[in-house]
Design a protein around this nucleic acid. Sequence first.
DNA 1: TGTTAGCACTCAATACATCCGAGTGCTAAT
DNA 2: ATTAGCACTCGGATGTATTGAGTGCTAACA
Lengths: 350, 350
Amino acid sequence: MLTGVIDMLTNRQLLVLKVIIDDFIETAQPVGSRHIAKKDQVSYSPATIRNEMADLEDLGYLEKTHSSSGRIPSEKGYRYYVDHIMSPLQLSKNEVNQIRYSFSNRMMELERVMQNSAHILSELTRYTTIVLGPQVYETKLKQIQIVPLNNQSAIAILVTDKGHVEHRSFAIPGDLDQSDLEKTVNILNEKLAGVPIVYLSQLIETEVKYLLEKYTNDYQKSYELLNQAFFTEQPTNLYVGGKSNILAQPEFTNVERVRALFNIMENEEDIAPLLKATDEGLHIFIGHENKIEAMNKCTLMTATYSLGDNQYGTVALLGPTRMDYAKAVSILDLWSTQMSQSLQKWFNEQ
Amino acid sequence: MLTGVIDMLTNRQLLVLKVIIDDFIETAQPVGSRHIAKKDQVSYSPATIRNEMADLEDLGYLEKTHSSSGRIPSEKGYRYYVDHIMSPLQLSKNEVNQIRYSFSNRMMELERVMQNSAHILSELTRYTTIVLGPQVYETKLKQIQIVPLNNQSAIAILVTDKGHVEHRSFAIPGDLDQSDLEKTVNILNEKLAGVPIVYLSQLIETEVKYLLEKYTNDYQKSYELLNQAFFTEQPTNLYVGGKSNILAQPEFTNVERVRALFNIMENEEDIAPLLKATDEGLHIFIGHENKIEAMNKCTLMTATYSLGDNQYGTVALLGPTRMDYAKAVSILDLWSTQMSQSLQKWFNEQ
DNA sequence: TGTTAGCACTCAATACATCCGAGTGCTAAT
DNA sequence: ATTAGCACTCGGATGTATTGAGTGCTAACA
């Protein structure tokens, strides 16, 4: 369990640090020497514990809330705990099943899966969950459809090879020829199917424009239509679940602090870059390791999941620095493995 | 402005009640007699005001927070204010423009408009905004598309005549004949286009099943596919904006209370029925007039908007009972009028 | 030499007393 | 009918004492 002497810490210091952090994670109360000495795992007197605690404080792993209070872990303490002490928690049968089951579902659509995952993960962890859909550099256009609703309006539907559906309704430019509409769609499908969607607008400009000019009666109208229907900013597909779990944490009884956090989470522009920037694998950002001020009392734990083709999505848990790291790691790990497996089964078995 | 003697209240009582409620709505502080007497509109001494306030309290329109405090409006007071005293606020040029502009947008898709509206209304009012999409009894299927992604999966897309797009990916039943897939889609479109979507599943059972049996090679497979793709529960289309505005209200510094509210708003099943049940027009539910306990300190203001064809959607503002009723009414009024106009222009001009 | 008992000390939390002032209700004067 | 005057109320702020959980340090001990 305890991996012996690491850094400069003795085994006993490791033990004390672990017990304190475990206890604080559970109770959110400063931990005193007497309290520790009473635990089964510990066979020293309060006085001895006090000495060790004083040393751990000098080393920066513990803090006091006031001069005669018990100790709480510092951010450095959590960092050490996460890096060297904790071992992933064995998840309960029930927790494993819930995650597994959420992927066994026959309906398998990125949007729904992500939305659902955000929900389930937040239920299991009681933290806020953020799921960022995969980056779409490699996603290719599968098909374009245009469905006219009436004389004036129609819906353009883009389907990508990853099953993402984007739709947009638009006004049909006054008295556009019906056959021109059809021709336009045909030209689009012919030229654009299989094209990575990041190149879409570029290709419309270079290739499609010219074809439209040649084959449709009213080139100007068709082009106008295209612009209306397809110049859509890339949507960041972000799914947040269990936002209000934050309110249950004792460290967030201060409404102002909660407000600051909510503001961040309600702005995709604030939160998306945080997840996009993370490297592959599981990462933990403790307290001030988060650049955003409102998250200084929070831990953000991120993990990536893979669609193959070097395409990654990110999932994150946001909780207090006093997060149940062992459990969170296990859950995030299991989820991202399952997610990756499911996605690859769906999209890459040719 | 003041409509003379109503109920049993004298003009002066009306004036005092109005001034108190207006002031309390603004400041959230109990209003004292001295404070009122100083206002320009009021030309009586504090003592006189005190007498009137005592009477208004006896009648149940005002309350004290403690025996020597100023007065705050009771729920009955707000009700009276809303019904008889207040006059809609003249909106600023800027506010009107923001609402108008949000409809002038060329992109016109129900989902986006509603999402956008929830956002704008919450910005303008600083209350939480809930937009419930129109009930779809009359919505008809426009077209069905199936886009195969690869050998095993495909996406089914349903477009309704109101421009709503529903999509679902599904597994293609093992080695389903390609021509059978096409035939199935053709049969579906032929038989189901124009059908109100509430009857969809029924019609598949009665009419389509039989046709499939007749014209496709592997009837069983096609039918299996249909079931996978189209048996979708009716989604309640609910859009919430500015949830965290609640946190800015001084009456919600109590985290527990906020949590209760958030829980309600995060459950569609809780909040949707509230809006669905409202009658046409604008309605105000003050404090305990809301059945849900967590909303006992809130006012819910609902308004309906129309798509024609007797189809209604609902928009609502949720704020403290100390809501700026005059402004909220004006904004909701303007919005729902604009929304109705826009929708009817889009969907009913043939 | 590492461990622990003992003890003085610290400080947040709690309770309690006091004071202040905004606000009321009532009475008597205008 | 209105208002000035005044005694009274009570929440909130401020000050003080008490309590108890916890510490650091020292000296004794195995």
